[in-house]
Design a binder for these strands. Sequence first.
RNA 1: GACCCCAUCGUCUAGUUGGCCUAGGACACUGGCCUUUCACGCCGGCGACACGGGUUCGAAUCCCGUUGGGGUCGCCA
Length: 486
Amino acid sequence: MVDTTDRSVRVRIAPSPTGDPHVGTGYIALFNYAFARKMGGKFILRIEDTDQARYRADSEAAITDALNWLGVTWDEGPDVGGDFGPYHQSKRTAIYQEHCEKLLASGHAYRCFCSPETLAEIREECKAAKINPPMYDRRCKAMDPAEAKKRADAGEECVVRMVIPRDGTIKFEDKLRGEVEISASQIDDQVLLKGDGFPTYHLANVVDDHLMGISHVVRAEEWISSTPKHVLLYRYFGWDAPEWVHMPLLRNNDKSKISKRKNPVSIHYYRDIGILPDALRNFLSIMGYSFGGDREVFGLDEMIEGFSWDRVSLGGPVFDQDKLRWMNEQHIRALTNEELVDAFMGWRYNREHMLKIAPLIHKRIKTLSDFAGATEYMFSSEVDYAPFADKLSIPDVAKKDIWKGILELVDDVDKLDGFEPEALEATARAFCEKKGWKPKHVFGLLRIGSTGRKASPPLFETMAVIGKDICRRRLRELAEFIKKMK
RNA sequence: GACCCCAUCGUCUAGUUGGCCUAGGACACUGGCCUUUCACGCCGGCGACACGGGUUCGAAUCCCGUUGGGGUCGCCA
């Protein structure tokens, strides 16, 4: 089935720098990468930074670091260059606007001046009238294009929407499932160009995939329902569409789409608790995929060599932490003692990390041998809250408000760029203010939550050393623990 | 709610042109052996083809329906 002589395969991973490097990004990147290597094709990294509101400065580097850490590397991308750049969508706005003009000219798109408020009203009306799914009523489509252009040129803010046929169906072939058919009546006149002049995913994605010569779009299953829009866009532009491959979604234990509320989803979390990169990679590669025979532990090269879409299964795989740990154990065993020691040193037993710890424990140890006891929680992945059950309360605050509050604080911290002590403290104090809770009570909970101790070096410095991802995980577990307390 | 996708042990999966499946492996759980302890290792146990109709000599494998789960329905990707 797989033609290994096909050199024209070009695939891409297109993450959005809006947060932490997600395991789902790593998962999809891995399959794109394996397929590209198998076919002797190219794997491209493109940064989809078209959302100014959600853009996070520290995110892109975190994503590229995480992907490299996983062992997935790209042939073209913002850092390595290539013949199809630029590879940041934010640097391609002129291209999208130009293409939007073509659609406008051919009558496949129109300007829309409706405000977000108007749109919300329309959505409400649809709901009330039980119109499913709720859709834009296309009122601006009736406007004379010349008149619309005049208003836009005069500086009035507007978006550009694509025209979806009134009836008929849109079909496409998914490599893993066969033909998928969706009625045009289900599809809204999608916004292509936002009010700020940036493109939406749909436009940018199609234009870039075409311009970058992408042959196969390998992405997550959640995109299936918007694929008809993309198919239409290719048609409107007169381009050949790529092949579609929709991988199953990684799941929480309850089978819902994997999410940070129910699972650690940052690749950094797994790195920080001491999962070997090749173990995470191996684990991700048995999600929805089987190597063949009874092999579960295999190298990236082996996966590439035997790679075939035929080996993908479509039931959504649950991301099982236990099995990940077992996988990691297998990879640790495969190490020599020399390599194991290197792994420890590469992880946290190194000068750089010790230098962060040193000021925190310097005046808290009497002998060097006190180190292990004084820092145990800085190296472990989980802590036990049971010994503190009687300390997990705040005077005059209901238990429910406490655990919900902790979750809220975690969300506040999530919005930060980075995890610096100063910003952390400011966020925590703002939270106390907001809640009307005393810092000493909140900080006490934070301390127990992130260290598993009631005494520690300065809280926020300590949290910074433990790291954002582990702290977040611990705090969520603390909330869970309190929730379950009688 | 509408539309789309999916459906083998609790979990990851093998099973891919229907017969070699009284359904195999792995994680987890569990009984035992080994052992000065623990871990590893070894042997064993528990445990699934969602249900109902077809097609066929024969179905986990094909078709239809039902049920269940998931996803999407944003000027987010």
